[in-house]
Design a binder for these strands. Structure first.
Lengths: 230, 230
DNA sequence: GTCTATATTTAGATAGAC
DNA sequence: GTCTATCTAAATATAGAC
Protein backbone atom coordinates (compact mmCIF):
# COMPACT_ATOMS: atom_id res chain seq x y z
CA UNK A 1 0.00 0.00 0.00
CA UNK A 2 1.31 3.44 -0.87
CA UNK A 3 2.36 5.76 1.90
CA UNK A 4 -0.16 8.49 1.24
CA UNK A 5 -2.93 5.94 1.19
CA UNK A 6 -1.93 4.63 4.60
CA UNK A 7 -1.84 8.12 6.02
CA UNK A 8 -5.35 8.69 4.78
CA UNK A 9 -6.57 5.42 6.22
CA UNK A 10 -5.08 6.30 9.59
CA UNK A 11 -6.83 9.66 9.53
CA UNK A 12 -10.17 8.04 8.70
CA UNK A 13 -9.85 5.53 11.53
CA UNK A 14 -8.72 8.24 13.93
CA UNK A 15 -11.74 10.39 13.02
CA UNK A 16 -14.09 7.59 13.96
CA UNK A 17 -12.32 6.71 17.20
CA UNK A 18 -11.78 10.29 18.40
CA UNK A 19 -15.44 11.03 17.68
CA UNK A 20 -16.58 7.98 19.62
CA UNK A 21 -14.25 8.08 22.61
CA UNK A 22 -12.79 11.58 22.76
CA UNK A 23 -9.16 12.67 22.64
CA UNK A 24 -7.97 10.88 25.76
CA UNK A 25 -10.22 7.88 25.16
CA UNK A 26 -8.14 6.72 22.20
CA UNK A 27 -4.53 5.59 21.92
CA UNK A 28 -2.26 5.69 18.91
CA UNK A 29 -1.95 1.90 19.19
CA UNK A 30 -5.68 1.48 18.94
CA UNK A 31 -5.84 3.73 15.90
CA UNK A 32 -3.01 1.77 14.26
CA UNK A 33 -4.53 -1.58 15.14
CA UNK A 34 -7.98 -0.74 13.77
CA UNK A 35 -6.36 0.68 10.64
CA UNK A 36 -4.56 -2.64 10.21
CA UNK A 37 -1.01 -1.28 10.54
CA UNK A 38 1.69 -1.42 13.18
CA UNK A 39 1.69 1.11 15.98
CA UNK A 40 5.15 2.30 15.05
CA UNK A 41 3.93 3.09 11.55
CA UNK A 42 1.37 5.52 12.88
CA UNK A 43 4.17 7.12 14.82
CA UNK A 44 6.24 7.38 11.69
CA UNK A 45 3.53 9.28 9.78
CA UNK A 46 2.47 11.47 12.69
CA UNK A 47 4.91 11.91 15.48
CA UNK A 48 2.35 11.97 18.29
CA UNK A 49 -1.33 11.86 19.14
CA UNK A 50 -1.96 15.58 19.03
CA UNK A 51 -0.71 15.85 15.47
CA UNK A 52 -3.03 13.02 14.42
CA UNK A 53 -5.91 14.86 16.01
CA UNK A 54 -4.94 18.08 14.28
CA UNK A 55 -4.84 16.31 10.93
CA UNK A 56 -8.26 14.81 11.56
CA UNK A 57 -9.81 18.08 12.64
CA UNK A 58 -8.32 19.95 9.73
CA UNK A 59 -9.81 17.38 7.35
CA UNK A 60 -13.13 17.86 9.08
CA UNK A 61 -13.35 21.61 9.33
CA UNK A 62 -11.82 22.98 6.12
CA UNK A 63 -14.64 22.05 3.70
CA UNK A 64 -17.27 23.19 6.21
CA UNK A 65 -15.60 26.56 6.67
CA UNK A 66 -15.14 26.90 2.93
CA UNK A 67 -18.83 26.27 2.45
CA UNK A 68 -19.78 28.76 5.14
CA UNK A 69 -17.60 31.50 3.67
CA UNK A 70 -19.05 30.91 0.20
CA UNK A 71 -22.61 31.21 1.44
CA UNK A 72 -21.91 34.29 3.53
CA UNK A 73 -20.05 36.03 0.71
CA UNK A 74 -22.85 35.21 -1.67
CA UNK A 75 -25.30 36.92 0.69
CA UNK A 76 -23.01 39.93 0.96
CA UNK A 77 -22.91 40.19 -2.83
CA UNK A 78 -26.68 40.02 -3.06
CA UNK A 79 -26.90 42.78 -0.51
CA UNK A 80 -24.47 44.94 -2.47
CA UNK A 81 -26.74 44.45 -5.46
CA UNK A 82 -29.61 45.94 -3.50
CA UNK A 83 -31.52 42.88 -2.25
CA UNK A 84 -32.40 43.00 1.42
CA UNK A 85 -30.86 40.15 3.42
CA UNK A 86 -32.63 38.65 6.44
CA UNK A 87 -31.00 37.49 9.65
CA UNK A 88 -32.50 34.05 8.98
CA UNK A 89 -30.52 33.76 5.77
CA UNK A 90 -27.26 34.55 7.53
CA UNK A 91 -28.01 32.07 10.30
CA UNK A 92 -28.82 29.39 7.75
CA UNK A 93 -25.57 30.12 5.92
CA UNK A 94 -23.60 29.40 9.06
CA UNK A 95 -25.44 26.37 10.44
CA UNK A 96 -26.43 24.54 7.26
CA UNK A 97 -22.96 23.42 6.12
CA UNK A 98 -22.28 21.78 9.48
CA UNK A 99 -25.71 20.19 9.84
CA UNK A 100 -25.53 18.76 6.33
CA UNK A 101 -22.10 17.25 6.88
CA UNK A 102 -23.26 15.79 10.20
CA UNK A 103 -26.00 13.82 8.46
CA UNK A 104 -24.09 12.68 5.41
CA UNK A 105 -24.29 8.97 4.68
CA UNK A 106 -21.28 6.88 3.82
CA UNK A 107 -18.74 9.57 4.76
CA UNK A 108 -17.02 10.56 7.98
CA UNK A 109 -19.51 13.42 8.39
CA UNK A 110 -21.16 12.10 11.52
CA UNK A 111 -17.73 11.69 13.14
CA UNK A 112 -16.72 15.20 12.12
CA UNK A 113 -19.83 16.62 13.73
CA UNK A 114 -18.99 14.89 16.97
CA UNK A 115 -15.45 16.25 16.86
CA UNK A 116 -16.74 19.80 16.45
CA UNK A 117 -19.08 19.19 19.34
CA UNK A 118 -16.18 17.98 21.51
CA UNK A 119 -13.87 20.85 20.67
CA UNK A 120 -16.29 23.74 20.97
CA UNK A 121 -16.95 23.73 24.71
CA UNK A 122 -13.80 21.96 25.91
CA UNK A 123 -11.52 24.06 28.15
CA UNK A 124 -8.42 21.89 27.57
CA UNK A 125 -5.35 23.40 26.00
CA UNK A 126 -5.24 21.19 22.92
CA UNK A 127 -8.90 21.91 22.23
CA UNK A 128 -8.48 25.66 22.71
CA UNK A 129 -5.52 25.75 20.35
CA UNK A 130 -7.43 23.95 17.63
CA UNK A 131 -10.58 25.97 18.12
CA UNK A 132 -8.58 29.17 18.03
CA UNK A 133 -6.79 28.24 14.84
CA UNK A 134 -9.65 26.70 12.88
CA UNK A 135 -12.90 28.16 14.17
CA UNK A 136 -12.16 31.66 15.45
CA UNK A 137 -11.56 33.10 11.95
CA UNK A 138 -14.87 31.79 10.63
CA UNK A 139 -16.57 33.04 13.78
CA UNK A 140 -15.30 36.54 13.13
CA UNK A 141 -16.31 36.31 9.51
CA UNK A 142 -19.85 35.29 10.50
CA UNK A 143 -20.13 37.93 13.18
CA UNK A 144 -19.02 40.56 10.68
CA UNK A 145 -21.86 39.48 8.40
CA UNK A 146 -24.35 39.85 11.26
CA UNK A 147 -22.94 43.10 12.55
CA UNK A 148 -25.33 45.50 10.83
CA UNK A 149 -28.25 43.81 12.62
CA UNK A 150 -26.66 44.43 15.99
CA UNK A 151 -25.32 47.93 15.62
CA UNK A 152 -21.66 48.63 15.17
CA UNK A 153 -20.89 49.13 18.83
CA UNK A 154 -22.65 46.12 20.25
CA UNK A 155 -19.85 43.58 20.17
CA UNK A 156 -20.88 42.07 23.49
CA UNK A 157 -24.41 41.05 22.52
CA UNK A 158 -23.30 39.99 19.07
CA UNK A 159 -20.68 37.67 20.55
CA UNK A 160 -22.98 36.07 23.09
CA UNK A 161 -25.66 35.58 20.46
CA UNK A 162 -23.18 33.97 18.10
CA UNK A 163 -21.90 31.62 20.80
CA UNK A 164 -25.42 30.69 21.88
CA UNK A 165 -26.28 30.03 18.25
CA UNK A 166 -23.28 27.79 17.70
CA UNK A 167 -24.05 25.88 20.88
CA UNK A 168 -27.70 25.41 19.88
CA UNK A 169 -26.45 23.94 16.62
CA UNK A 170 -24.36 21.42 18.56
CA UNK A 171 -27.56 20.17 20.16
CA UNK A 172 -28.87 19.49 16.66
CA UNK A 173 -25.87 17.53 15.40
CA UNK A 174 -24.67 15.45 18.35
CA UNK A 175 -25.78 11.84 18.24
CA UNK A 176 -26.89 11.13 21.77
CA UNK A 177 -30.26 9.61 20.91
CA UNK A 178 -31.80 12.07 23.33
CA UNK A 179 -34.07 13.84 20.84
CA UNK A 180 -35.77 10.61 19.87
CA UNK A 181 -35.97 9.45 23.46
CA UNK A 182 -37.42 12.61 24.99
CA UNK A 183 -39.88 13.14 22.15
CA UNK A 184 -41.17 9.58 22.24
CA UNK A 185 -39.92 9.04 18.71
CA UNK A 186 -41.42 12.08 17.00
CA UNK A 187 -38.05 13.82 16.52
CA UNK A 188 -36.05 12.54 13.55
CA UNK A 189 -32.45 13.81 13.75
CA UNK A 190 -31.77 12.45 10.26
CA UNK A 191 -34.40 14.66 8.64
CA UNK A 192 -31.99 17.52 8.06
CA UNK A 193 -34.42 19.84 6.33
CA UNK A 194 -36.86 19.47 9.18
CA UNK A 195 -34.17 20.06 11.81
CA UNK A 196 -32.92 23.14 9.96
CA UNK A 197 -36.47 24.48 9.67
CA UNK A 198 -36.62 24.52 13.48
CA UNK A 199 -32.98 25.37 14.27
CA UNK A 200 -32.71 28.40 11.97
CA UNK A 201 -35.76 30.29 13.28
CA UNK A 202 -34.75 29.33 16.82
CA UNK A 203 -31.36 31.02 16.51
CA UNK A 204 -32.46 33.99 14.41
CA UNK A 205 -35.56 34.52 16.56
CA UNK A 206 -33.43 34.29 19.69
CA UNK A 207 -31.13 36.99 18.39
CA UNK A 208 -34.04 39.26 17.48
CA UNK A 209 -35.59 38.82 20.88
CA UNK A 210 -32.31 39.71 22.60
CA UNK A 211 -32.04 42.86 20.53
CA UNK A 212 -35.65 43.77 21.27
CA UNK A 213 -35.11 43.29 25.00
CA UNK A 214 -32.05 45.56 25.20
CA UNK A 215 -32.42 49.22 26.00
CA UNK A 216 -31.27 51.09 22.89
CA UNK A 217 -27.68 52.28 23.02
CA UNK A 218 -27.80 56.08 23.27
CA UNK A 219 -25.08 56.90 20.74
CA UNK A 220 -26.37 54.72 17.91
CA UNK A 221 -28.85 56.29 15.54
CA UNK A 222 -31.74 54.01 14.60
CA UNK A 223 -31.12 54.57 10.93
CA UNK A 224 -27.67 53.02 11.20
CA UNK A 225 -29.14 49.67 12.13
CA UNK A 226 -30.84 47.28 9.82
CA UNK A 227 -34.31 46.26 10.82
CA UNK A 228 -34.42 42.89 12.49
CA UNK A 229 -37.73 41.61 11.22
CA UNK A 230 -37.85 38.99 8.51
CA UNK B 1 -8.55 11.31 58.87
CA UNK B 2 -12.03 9.91 59.12
CA UNK B 3 -13.30 7.73 56.30
CA UNK B 4 -16.21 9.88 55.23
CA UNK B 5 -13.94 12.88 55.12
CA UNK B 6 -11.53 11.08 52.79
CA UNK B 7 -14.35 10.00 50.51
CA UNK B 8 -15.47 13.60 50.24
CA UNK B 9 -11.98 14.83 49.52
CA UNK B 10 -11.61 12.26 46.76
CA UNK B 11 -14.88 13.39 45.21
CA UNK B 12 -13.79 17.04 45.31
CA UNK B 13 -10.46 16.27 43.65
CA UNK B 14 -12.15 14.06 41.07
CA UNK B 15 -14.64 16.82 40.22
CA UNK B 16 -11.81 19.20 39.44
CA UNK B 17 -9.81 16.71 37.40
CA UNK B 18 -12.74 15.25 35.44
CA UNK B 19 -13.89 18.79 34.63
CA UNK B 20 -10.43 19.78 33.43
CA UNK B 21 -9.39 16.68 31.51
CA UNK B 22 -12.55 14.69 30.84
CA UNK B 23 -13.40 11.14 31.86
CA UNK B 24 -10.60 9.37 29.98
CA UNK B 25 -8.11 12.15 30.65
CA UNK B 26 -7.89 11.27 34.34
CA UNK B 27 -6.67 8.15 36.13
CA UNK B 28 -7.69 6.91 39.54
CA UNK B 29 -4.05 7.08 40.54
CA UNK B 30 -3.94 10.76 39.66
CA UNK B 31 -7.09 11.46 41.64
CA UNK B 32 -5.68 9.62 44.63
CA UNK B 33 -2.30 11.29 44.37
CA UNK B 34 -3.72 14.81 44.20
CA UNK B 35 -6.02 14.01 47.09
CA UNK B 36 -2.98 12.93 49.08
CA UNK B 37 -3.96 9.30 49.55
CA UNK B 38 -2.84 5.97 48.14
CA UNK B 39 -4.32 4.77 44.86
CA UNK B 40 -5.63 1.63 46.48
CA UNK B 41 -7.58 3.72 48.98
CA UNK B 42 -9.55 5.37 46.21
CA UNK B 43 -10.31 1.89 44.96
CA UNK B 44 -11.47 0.85 48.38
CA UNK B 45 -14.02 3.68 48.61
CA UNK B 46 -15.16 3.44 45.00
CA UNK B 47 -14.56 0.19 43.24
CA UNK B 48 -13.73 1.69 39.84
CA UNK B 49 -13.44 4.89 37.87
CA UNK B 50 -16.99 4.99 36.59
CA UNK B 51 -18.41 4.87 40.09
CA UNK B 52 -16.17 7.79 41.10
CA UNK B 53 -17.51 9.73 38.16
CA UNK B 54 -21.08 8.83 39.05
CA UNK B 55 -20.56 10.03 42.60
CA UNK B 56 -19.10 13.30 41.34
CA UNK B 57 -21.88 13.92 38.88
CA UNK B 58 -24.55 13.09 41.44
CA UNK B 59 -23.01 15.60 43.83
CA UNK B 60 -23.06 18.13 41.00
CA UNK B 61 -26.52 17.66 39.60
CA UNK B 62 -28.80 16.98 42.57
CA UNK B 63 -28.90 20.49 44.06
CA UNK B 64 -29.28 22.03 40.60
CA UNK B 65 -32.19 19.78 39.74
CA UNK B 66 -33.76 20.42 43.13
CA UNK B 67 -33.54 24.14 42.52
CA UNK B 68 -35.01 23.82 39.03
CA UNK B 69 -37.97 21.77 40.27
CA UNK B 70 -38.65 24.25 43.05
CA UNK B 71 -38.71 27.19 40.66
CA UNK B 72 -40.87 25.41 38.10
CA UNK B 73 -43.35 24.23 40.72
CA UNK B 74 -43.55 27.70 42.16
CA UNK B 75 -44.48 29.04 38.72
CA UNK B 76 -47.10 26.31 38.34
CA UNK B 77 -48.61 27.31 41.68
CA UNK B 78 -48.72 30.95 40.68
CA UNK B 79 -50.48 29.95 37.50
CA UNK B 80 -53.06 27.91 39.43
CA UNK B 81 -53.72 31.04 41.48
CA UNK B 82 -54.62 32.91 38.32
CA UNK B 83 -51.40 34.79 37.46
CA UNK B 84 -50.34 34.50 33.85
CA UNK B 85 -46.91 32.91 33.44
CA UNK B 86 -44.58 33.92 30.60
CA UNK B 87 -42.31 31.61 28.63
CA UNK B 88 -39.38 33.76 29.75
CA UNK B 89 -40.10 32.90 33.36
CA UNK B 90 -40.07 29.19 32.65
CA UNK B 91 -36.84 29.47 30.68
CA UNK B 92 -35.23 31.43 33.48
CA UNK B 93 -36.35 28.81 35.99
CA UNK B 94 -34.51 26.13 34.08
CA UNK B 95 -31.30 27.91 33.13
CA UNK B 96 -30.70 30.10 36.17
CA UNK B 97 -29.82 27.37 38.70
CA UNK B 98 -27.12 25.98 36.42
CA UNK B 99 -25.70 29.35 35.42
CA UNK B 100 -25.53 30.48 39.04
CA UNK B 101 -23.72 27.31 40.15
CA UNK B 102 -21.31 27.65 37.23
CA UNK B 103 -20.19 31.07 38.46
CA UNK B 104 -20.03 30.36 42.18
CA UNK B 105 -16.81 31.37 43.85
CA UNK B 106 -14.96 29.13 46.27
CA UNK B 107 -17.03 26.05 45.46
CA UNK B 108 -16.79 23.30 42.88
CA UNK B 109 -19.47 25.04 40.82
CA UNK B 110 -17.26 25.87 37.86
CA UNK B 111 -16.16 22.23 37.69
CA UNK B 112 -19.73 21.03 37.90
CA UNK B 113 -20.70 23.24 34.98
CA UNK B 114 -17.92 21.75 32.91
CA UNK B 115 -19.07 18.24 33.79
CA UNK B 116 -22.62 19.00 32.66
CA UNK B 117 -21.20 20.43 29.47
CA UNK B 118 -19.17 17.24 28.89
CA UNK B 119 -22.03 14.86 29.55
CA UNK B 120 -24.77 16.58 27.59
CA UNK B 121 -23.56 16.07 24.03
CA UNK B 122 -21.31 13.06 24.56
CA UNK B 123 -22.41 9.91 22.70
CA UNK B 124 -20.39 7.50 24.91
CA UNK B 125 -22.18 4.85 26.90
CA UNK B 126 -21.13 6.02 30.33
CA UNK B 127 -22.25 9.55 29.51
CA UNK B 128 -25.59 8.40 28.09
CA UNK B 129 -26.31 6.31 31.17
CA UNK B 130 -25.62 9.23 33.50
CA UNK B 131 -27.54 11.71 31.38
CA UNK B 132 -30.47 9.34 31.19
CA UNK B 133 -30.55 8.78 34.91
CA UNK B 134 -29.91 12.30 36.16
CA UNK B 135 -31.04 14.74 33.47
CA UNK B 136 -33.86 13.09 31.54
CA UNK B 137 -36.35 13.34 34.44
CA UNK B 138 -35.74 17.07 34.89
CA UNK B 139 -35.96 17.52 31.12
CA UNK B 140 -39.41 15.94 31.10
CA UNK B 141 -40.45 18.04 34.06
CA UNK B 142 -39.36 21.23 32.29
CA UNK B 143 -40.95 20.25 29.01
CA UNK B 144 -44.21 19.53 30.82
CA UNK B 145 -44.12 23.06 32.23
CA UNK B 146 -43.64 24.48 28.72
CA UNK B 147 -46.19 22.24 27.07
CA UNK B 148 -49.14 24.62 27.07
CA UNK B 149 -47.11 27.10 25.00
CA UNK B 150 -46.49 24.49 22.34
CA UNK B 151 -49.84 22.77 22.07
CA UNK B 152 -50.45 19.34 23.49
CA UNK B 153 -49.63 17.44 20.32
CA UNK B 154 -46.41 19.16 19.36
CA UNK B 155 -43.91 16.96 21.15
CA UNK B 156 -41.41 17.18 18.30
CA UNK B 157 -40.98 20.94 18.28
CA UNK B 158 -41.08 21.13 22.04
CA UNK B 159 -38.26 18.59 22.31
CA UNK B 160 -36.03 20.25 19.74
CA UNK B 161 -36.60 23.64 21.34
CA UNK B 162 -35.74 22.29 24.78
CA UNK B 163 -32.56 20.64 23.49
CA UNK B 164 -31.50 23.79 21.62
CA UNK B 165 -32.16 25.79 24.77
CA UNK B 166 -30.07 23.49 26.94
CA UNK B 167 -27.24 23.57 24.41
CA UNK B 168 -27.33 27.36 24.22
CA UNK B 169 -26.98 27.41 28.00
CA UNK B 170 -23.85 25.28 27.73
CA UNK B 171 -22.32 28.00 25.60
CA UNK B 172 -22.92 30.39 28.48
CA UNK B 173 -21.33 28.26 31.21
CA UNK B 174 -18.33 26.59 29.61
CA UNK B 175 -15.03 28.26 30.40
CA UNK B 176 -13.24 28.34 27.10
CA UNK B 177 -12.29 32.02 27.19
CA UNK B 178 -13.86 32.34 23.78
CA UNK B 179 -16.48 34.94 24.69
CA UNK B 180 -13.86 37.36 25.96
CA UNK B 181 -11.58 36.66 23.04
CA UNK B 182 -14.12 37.04 20.23
CA UNK B 183 -15.70 40.12 21.79
CA UNK B 184 -12.40 41.89 22.33
CA UNK B 185 -13.01 41.86 26.07
CA UNK B 186 -16.52 43.30 26.18
CA UNK B 187 -18.14 39.99 27.21
CA UNK B 188 -17.83 39.22 30.92
CA UNK B 189 -18.76 35.56 31.57
CA UNK B 190 -18.61 36.19 35.33
CA UNK B 191 -21.38 38.79 35.23
CA UNK B 192 -24.12 36.22 35.70
CA UNK B 193 -27.03 38.66 35.74
CA UNK B 194 -25.86 40.15 32.47
CA UNK B 195 -25.38 36.74 30.85
CA UNK B 196 -28.84 35.63 32.01
CA UNK B 197 -30.38 38.84 30.66
CA UNK B 198 -29.15 37.82 27.21
CA UNK B 199 -29.47 34.04 27.47
CA UNK B 200 -33.07 33.96 28.70
CA UNK B 201 -34.59 36.13 25.94
CA UNK B 202 -32.44 34.27 23.40
CA UNK B 203 -33.94 30.91 24.33
CA UNK B 204 -37.50 32.10 24.94
CA UNK B 205 -37.45 34.27 21.81
CA UNK B 206 -36.06 31.38 19.80
CA UNK B 207 -38.92 29.18 20.92
CA UNK B 208 -41.53 31.82 20.08
CA UNK B 209 -40.04 32.32 16.64
CA UNK B 210 -40.12 28.58 15.95
CA UNK B 211 -43.77 28.43 16.95
CA UNK B 212 -44.57 31.46 14.80
CA UNK B 213 -42.82 29.90 11.80
CA UNK B 214 -44.73 26.62 11.98
CA UNK B 215 -47.96 26.16 10.04
CA UNK B 216 -50.68 25.79 12.64
CA UNK B 217 -51.62 22.20 13.42
CA UNK B 218 -55.15 21.67 12.05
CA UNK B 219 -56.62 19.73 14.97
CA UNK B 220 -55.56 22.12 17.73
CA UNK B 221 -57.97 24.92 18.54
CA UNK B 222 -56.28 28.27 19.10
CA UNK B 223 -58.00 28.67 22.45
CA UNK B 224 -56.26 25.59 23.77
CA UNK B 225 -52.87 27.25 23.42
CA UNK B 226 -51.44 29.88 25.62
CA UNK B 227 -50.32 33.02 23.87
CA UNK B 228 -46.60 33.12 23.33
CA UNK B 229 -45.97 36.80 23.72
CA UNK B 230 -44.44 38.17 26.86
C1' DG C 1 7.50 2.87 4.10
C1' DT C 2 6.81 -1.01 6.76
C1' DC C 3 7.93 -4.25 10.11
C1' DT C 4 9.92 -6.58 14.76
C1' DA C 5 11.65 -5.88 19.08
C1' DT C 6 12.08 -3.58 23.12
C1' DA C 7 12.78 0.14 26.73
C1' DT C 8 10.13 2.91 29.86
C1' DT C 9 5.87 4.55 32.06
C1' DT C 10 1.55 4.34 33.53
C1' DA C 11 -2.95 2.40 33.88
C1' DG C 12 -6.68 -0.44 36.60
C1' DA C 13 -7.21 -3.74 40.04
C1' DT C 14 -6.25 -7.01 44.00
C1' DA C 15 -4.12 -9.35 48.12
C1' DG C 16 -2.81 -8.94 52.52
C1' DA C 17 -0.42 -6.52 56.64
C1' DC C 18 -1.54 -3.25 60.28
C1' DG D 1 -9.73 2.70 56.87
C1' DT D 2 -5.14 3.00 55.37
C1' DC D 3 -0.94 1.30 53.75
C1' DT D 4 2.77 -1.64 50.92
C1' DA D 5 3.47 -4.72 47.43
C1' DT D 6 2.42 -6.70 43.24
C1' DC D 7 -0.03 -8.55 39.02
C1' DT D 8 -1.50 -7.63 34.40
C1' DA D 9 -2.48 -4.88 30.74
C1' DA D 10 -1.75 -0.99 28.05
C1' DA D 11 0.43 3.33 26.86
C1' DT D 12 4.28 6.31 24.44
C1' DA D 13 8.34 6.09 22.14
C1' DT D 14 12.70 4.54 19.83
C1' DA D 15 16.18 1.60 17.52
C1' DG D 16 17.18 -1.01 13.83
C1' DA D 17 16.25 -4.82 10.15
C1' DC D 18 14.24 -5.28 5.57
Amino acid sequence: MASLETRERIIATAARLFAQYGYHGVSLRQIAKETGVQASLAQYHFKNKESVFRAVFERCILPINHNRINKLDQLTRHEAEGREISLDEIVRAFVEPTVLVARERGTSGAFYAQLISQITNDPQEHARRISHEFTDPIARHTMAAMKSFFGESDQEILTWCYLFGVSAMLGAISRTGRARLLSGGSCDPDDTERVLSILVPFIAGGMRAVLAAQPKAPGVAKSKRRQTKK
